[in-house]
Simulated scan of single mutants.
Amino acid sequence: MTGPPEPDALGTLLRHVLEQIDADVATVYRERGLADYRPRFSPLVRALVAHGPMSIRALAQRVGVTHSAASQTVAAMRRAEFVRLSSGTDARQRIVELTPRATDLLPLIESEWNATTAAIRELDAELPMPLSELLARVDAALRRRPLRQRITEAGLGDH
């Protein structure tokens, strides 16, 4: 993409911003020799460090993503040998645990997290409102009245 999407293409604009952020963080890891580490791994790693091994469902709830998203991320982390899976209390449950490779990288992962948090705070200073606060407000507004309802009320109707 050569420039930002048009402002009315909200979904495209949100994806564009997220892709910029993720690409920059991924570059930080790549420059440090970790080309197979993805920014989306960090919330799961941090949850596993803080709370120990847990099921994919519990991990999804802990980090605030769908079970499907957590399962896909865990699969990618397993392929890169950052986590291992074991059977839970029943055959369907899979318990996620960090591997020694991941625990060896914890100082770098934590350092990146802290530096990224500081960089986001610096970015926030350039904005009229911190990005996280704006996104939390958007989330709350959509929970009160979903976009689907707003679209219908805007006049789409049953075409």
Rank of each mutant, 00 (worst) to 15 (best):
A60Y: 00
R79K: 13
E81K: 11
Q61T: 09
A76W: 07
T99E: 08
L85T: 11
A76C: 14
S55H: 11
L59R: 02
P53G: 13
D90G: 10
A70K: 05
R38M: 11
G64M: 01
F41W: 03
P100F: 06
S68E: 15
A47G: 06
R79T: 10
S55G: 15
A50L: 12
Q72R: 15
L44H: 08
Q61H: 10
V65E: 08
Q61M: 04
R46V: 15
H51S: 10
R79V: 08
G52W: 13
E97Y: 07
G64I: 00
G52Y: 10
H67G: 01
R40H: 07
E81R: 15
S42C: 03
M54C: 06
D90P: 10
T89H: 04
H67W: 14
T89K: 09
A70F: 08
P39S: 10
S55Y: 05
R92W: 00
I95V: 15
E81D: 14
F82Y: 15
P43N: 05
V96S: 00
F41M: 10
V63I: 11
G52K: 14
L98R: 06
E81M: 10
A60W: 03
I95T: 14
T73W: 00
V83R: 09
E97L: 07
S55R: 05
V65H: 04
A76H: 09
S68L: 13
A102H: 08
R62Y: 01
M77C: 03
